[in-house]
Computed example of a mutant assay.
Amino acid sequence: MSIEVQNISKSYGAQKALDNVSFSVKKGEIVGFLGPNGAGKSTLMKILTTYINADEGKASVNGNDVNENPKEVQLSVGYLAEHNPLYLDLYVREYLAFNADVYKVAKSRIEEVIELTGLSSESHKKIGQLSKGYRQRVGLATALLHNPEVLILDEPTTGLDPNQLVEIRNVIKNVGKNKTVFLSTHIMQEVEAICDRVIIINNGKIVTDKKLDKLVSEIKEQVIEVEFDKAVNEALFAKLPNLKSYKTISSNSWELTFETEIDMRSAIFDFAQDNSLKTLQLSLKSKNLEQIFREKTFNK
């Protein structure tokens, strides 16, 4: 296993950040690690990268225990922290050369990671002159410099505009072809575009750990928005089979939620005809990862 987490717990005073967390990540997987603010994501990533120690449990990266072999873990991991720490007064190549000395890697590797992360056009500038998107590329280039087997990325696209987000996403997806990637983010579209698997944590506990395609395939609800030509007596909706709930969007528009895998659009057309209604608009809204995330992390 590239990452092995066994019964990890961590508290800050009375606040339990991680509560008996266990999972493993196989070599070559791209895993999205999701959770609301304060759920324990960054804490676990800091444990995996040896920045802090767990109170209980064990964790290993590439077979190296994070407590017993921290140097080996650091050499096998590329880590991009949530707040990307950079020396803004250094030039891009100068900064990468400094890190190449730290990791004792050949200087030729600098040009390789510059090309890999799309930094060529900006590599002659000081880091302080770069946009947020290019600073993130510098962080990724640094994480990749020593050619680690595992990438641990904590909110790598925070603060990026849509164009920058797509660019960084493509960089991560490209480098992830040959590495294990453990990625924390709040952007669900990013997970859907990049990840093979999703782990959701809430209040320090794992609440979901599934392959992305399996998670989506298990969805047994469908939401349909429909607009009729006139007002509808709500009592009539009881005639619709598999209807779980309904709510009004506007005077004659409704959002209908069905608990079934059967496409209910034809049933709505039949419902309209039976009740002397005309269907002006009808659209099926697929339930997505964002909705699943809200369900799994909503604290009642």
Results as ranks from 00 to 15, higher is better:
203 N>V: 00
135 R>I: 09
127 I>Y: 08
78 G>D: 10
1 M>P: 00
96 L>D: 02
250 S>N: 14
178 N>I: 05
162 P>R: 14
232 V>H: 04
3 I>T: 09
81 A>Q: 15
136 Q>R: 12
74 Q>M: 11
187 I>S: 06
199 I>K: 01
20 N>C: 10
212 L>K: 15
77 V>W: 08
41 K>G: 07
261 E>Q: 13
24 S>Y: 10
15 Q>N: 14
78 G>A: 10
25 V>W: 10
63 G>A: 07
18 L>H: 10
251 S>Q: 13
96 L>N: 04
191 V>I: 14
30 I>N: 03
265 R>Q: 11
169 R>Y: 07
248 T>K: 14
290 E>W: 12
125 K>C: 02
31 V>Y: 05
98 F>G: 01
167 E>V: 05
148 P>R: 11
221 E>T: 15
103 Y>G: 02
54 A>G: 07
249 I>D: 01
234 E>G: 00
255 E>Y: 12
19 D>F: 04
134 Y>M: 04
260 T>H: 08
52 I>R: 09
61 V>H: 14
69 N>S: 13
287 K>S: 02
6 Q>W: 05
103 Y>S: 06
33 F>L: 14
249 I>A: 05
130 L>C: 10
110 I>P: 02
242 N>F: 14
214 K>V: 11
249 I>K: 11
226 V>N: 01
277 L>F: 02
28 G>S: 11
70 P>E: 11
117 T>A: 08
99 N>T: 06
212 L>G: 05
133 G>W: 05
8 I>D: 02
55 D>S: 06
107 K>F: 08
49 T>G: 07
221 E>W: 10
32 G>D: 04
30 I>T: 09
226 V>K: 01
177 K>Q: 14
280 L>S: 05
123 S>I: 02
185 T>D: 04
191 V>P: 00
63 G>C: 05
95 Y>S: 02
88 L>C: 00
191 V>W: 00
6 Q>M: 10
22 S>P: 02
293 F>K: 08
250 S>R: 12
278 K>G: 03
35 G>S: 10
177 K>S: 04
287 K>P: 00
136 Q>Y: 07
156 P>D: 12
235 A>T: 13
227 E>D: 04
67 N>G: 00
244 K>Y: 13
163 N>T: 14
244 K>F: 08
156 P>C: 06
108 S>F: 04
241 P>Y: 12
43 T>E: 09
92 V>Y: 11
281 Q>V: 03
109 R>V: 02
84 N>G: 03
155 E>A: 05
153 L>T: 01
267 A>C: 01
246 Y>T: 03
133 G>P: 00
115 E>G: 10
230 K>M: 00
250 S>E: 13
143 A>C: 02
59 A>C: 08
274 D>V: 01
221 E>G: 07
73 V>K: 11
148 P>V: 10
132 K>N: 06
256 L>T: 11
81 A>W: 13
55 D>G: 04
199 I>C: 01
28 G>N: 12
222 Q>N: 11
181 V>N: 05
270 D>N: 06
199 I>A: 03
289 L>K: 08
268 I>A: 02
246 Y>Q: 08
300 K>G: 12
59 A>W: 13
19 D>Q: 12
87 Y>T: 01
234 E>H: 04
169 R>E: 01
24 S>K: 15
252 N>L: 02
84 N>S: 11
119 L>F: 13
151 L>G: 06
90 L>R: 12
87 Y>I: 09
199 I>R: 03
265 R>K: 14
56 E>G: 01
